[in-house]
Design a protein around this nucleic acid. Structure first.
Lengths: 184, 184
DNA sequence: TAAAGCATGTAAGAGGTTACATGATTGG
DNA sequence: CCAATCATGTAACCTCTTACATGCTTTA
C-alpha cells in the first residue's frame, strides 16, 4: 500500500522522501513513519520503478520511471483487495485521475458491489445483535456500522455519476519534460 | 488489539479459539486469521490472563482469570491510542459495558476531543486541496473524509447522552460460577 | 464413505513501528 | 549561536497474513 502511495505521489512530479511523507500526511491519506518511507524508496529503486536524481543540496529526490508508471497503472486497476480494503480503495480513488477514463466507472462499480455485500453482512450482524440481546454499546456500534456503509454506498453513487459526466481530468505529461530539480 | 478483543470475548464466558475467531468475525469487529488467534491465546495463557479448561472433546476452551479481568479493565480505560485509533476505539466501545459506569462518559468524551481535532485537520486538508487545484477525485475523497468524521462526532454525542441517561448494563458475574464446560 | 466443515497448530514473511544515530539548514 | 526543523538512514521488534500440516466430526 505504501508502494502504491509513493508511486502515486511521484506521478505528480519528483519528490524526496521527507516530502513524500509530508504530502501523504497533509492529505490525511496515510500516516507512515520515516522508517517505512526510506526503505520503500530503496525497494522501489531496486525494482527499477523509480530513480534517484542528482541530489540538489542534501535532498535525494526520486522520479518515476516508465516502468514505474506502468506498474502504478496496474496497481490502480487491481481490485483484488482483501486486506485493508477501505484504505486501499481510498488510495486508488485519490489517483483515479491517472486511470484511463473508460475504466474508472468499472473500478467504482466493483467497489460498490463489495460495499453492498458488506452492507448485507452488517445488517445480518445487526439482526443477530438485536435478537441475542447484546448490550446497548455493542448494538450502537453495529448500528453505526450499518449507517456508515450505507453512507459510503450513496457517496459512491455520486462518484459514479460524476465519473459519467465529468470530462477526463487533464493529466500531467509524464514522458516529456520533467524538471531535473526537485521543487522546494 | 487482538489481545483486547480476545479478553473481551472471553469476559462473556469460556470459548475455544475457533469460536473466538468466529464471534469476532460475525460481529464484524475484527477479521483475524487462525495464525493470529492461536498464538494470541498461548501468549495470554503464558501471561496468566486466561487459562485452559479440561478439554471437552477436542476443543480447548479458555476462561478469563482474575488477572485477565483486571488487565481487560486497564486496557478498556487506556486511551493513549495513536495507532489504529478507530478500530481500537470500536473495540473498547463494544466492551464498554464492562467498564465502571462512572468512567464511561470520560472515555467517550476523550474520544470526542480527538475526533474534533481530526475534523479540524480534515477541514484544513480540504481547504488545501480546494485551493491547490487538486483533481475531482482527490477532492471528493477529502470532502467525504470531512463528512465521515462529522457524522462520527454527532454519533458520539448520541452515545454520550445515552451513557448519561441509561442505567448501567447488567454485568455477567465473573468471580462466581463459570461453567466448566464450554458452550456448544 | 466421501466431502464439508470443525479444530488446532507452526513457519516464513510482509509490512509496518519505535528508537536510535547523524548531521545540515534555517529562524529568532 | 542556539533551537527547531529538515533530512536520511538503520536495527530491533511487533503484529498479523499466507500457506501449510494434521486430524476429528458431521452430514448427505
Amino acid at each position: 500500500m505504501l508502494d502504491l502511495a509513493v508511486l502515486g505521489i511521484l506521478r505528480r512530479g519528483p519528490r524526496h522522501g521527507y516530502d513524500v511523507k509530508r504530502q501523504l500526511a497533509e492529505l490525511g491519506w496515510l500516516r507512515v513513519s520515516f522508517g517505512a518511507v526510506y526503505p520503500a524508496l530503496r525497494r522501489l529503486e531496486r525494482r527499477g520503478l523509480i530513480e534517484a536524481m542528482h541530489p540538489t543540496s542534501r535532498r535525494k529526490a526520486y522520479r518515476l520511471t516508465a516502468a514505474g508508471a506502468q506498474t502504478l497503472d496496474a496497481m490502480l486497476l487491481d481490485d483484488s483487495d482483501e486486506m485493508e480494503e477501505d484504505r486501499r480503495f481510498a488510495m486508488r480513488l485519490a489517483f483515479l485521475g491517472y486511470v484511463d477514463p473508460e475504466r474508472r466507472i468499472g473500478i467504482l462499480k466493483r467497489r460498490r458491489t463489495r460495499l453492498v455485500a458488506r452492507l448485507a453482512e452488517a445488517r445480518l450482524a445487526l439482526r443477530r445483535a438485536a435478537t441475542s440481546g447484546s448490550d446497548a454499546y455493542t448494538l450502537a456500534l453495529v448500528r453505526h456500522n450499518v449507517r456508515t456503509v450505507e453512507a459510503d454506498v450513496s457517496w459512491l453513487d455520486e462518484l459514479i455519476t460524476l465519473a459519467r459526466t465529468e470530462p477526463p481530468v487533464s493529466e500531467l505529461p509524464l514522458t516529456t519534460v520533467l524538471p531535473d530539480q526537485a521543487p522546494t
